[in-house]
Amino acid sequence: MSGLDSHITRCLDCRASIVWATTGKGNQMPLDAEPVSAGNVLLSVDRKGVHAGVLGPNQAAGARDRSQPLYQHHRLSCPHSHKWARRR
């Protein structure tokens, strides 16, 4: 994604490339830096940073149909997420 490269950092536990994005509610969300086919997060980048839009199943399917890259929360791929992920 254009502009995303300068926002990539590393997970402190597994050292994978991640991006911190701000959700619509103002929360910070760690995302895998590479898009995935099963993703449900659409990213946008502006001068204020990276913004995450969490999509419902139908919205995500539509984004995939339009070939938009989708990302996933890093807790889904981090082998150490049990240390830091919020309990549902």
Score class of each variant (00 low, 15 high):
H7Y: 13
H73N: 15
T22W: 02
R86F: 08
R66L: 15
V54L: 14
Q68Y: 13
G39H: 00
R88E: 08
R87P: 00
V19M: 01
N58E: 15
G26M: 05
C14N: 10
R87L: 11
S6N: 12
G62R: 12
G3T: 06
T22P: 00
C14M: 07
A38E: 09
G53R: 15
A61K: 15
L31V: 06
G56F: 07
V41T: 02
L12M: 12
W20Y: 14
S6V: 10
C11K: 09
D13Y: 15
Q59V: 06
R10A: 10
T23I: 01
I18L: 10
C14A: 06
H80L: 11
R86C: 06
S81N: 04
T22R: 12
G62E: 12
H82A: 12
A61L: 12
K48R: 15
L70Q: 03
L70H: 05
I18D: 01
G49I: 02
V41G: 03
D46S: 12
G56L: 07
R86L: 13
A16C: 03
R47Q: 12
G24L: 08
G56K: 14
I8H: 03
T9S: 14
L43V: 00
V45D: 02
L4P: 01
D46F: 09
V50L: 05
R15F: 11
D5N: 14
H51C: 08
V36Q: 10
C78A: 00
R66M: 10
M29Y: 01
A52E: 04
R64M: 09
H82T: 04
L76W: 08
L12G: 13
R10T: 11
H73E: 11
A60E: 05
L42V: 00
R75C: 08
G62C: 09
P35I: 03
N27C: 09
R87M: 11
R15L: 13
S67F: 13
P30E: 02
N27D: 14
G39C: 03
V50A: 02
S6M: 11
T9G: 10
R86A: 15
P69V: 08
H51W: 12
H51R: 14
T9W: 04
A52P: 05
D65P: 03
N40A: 04
V45M: 01
S37Q: 13
S2A: 15
P79G: 13
N40L: 04
R47Y: 00
A61R: 15
K83Y: 08
K25C: 07
L55Y: 03
H80W: 10
S44W: 06
S37P: 08
N27E: 14
G39W: 00
C78Q: 02
C78T: 03
G39D: 03
R10G: 07
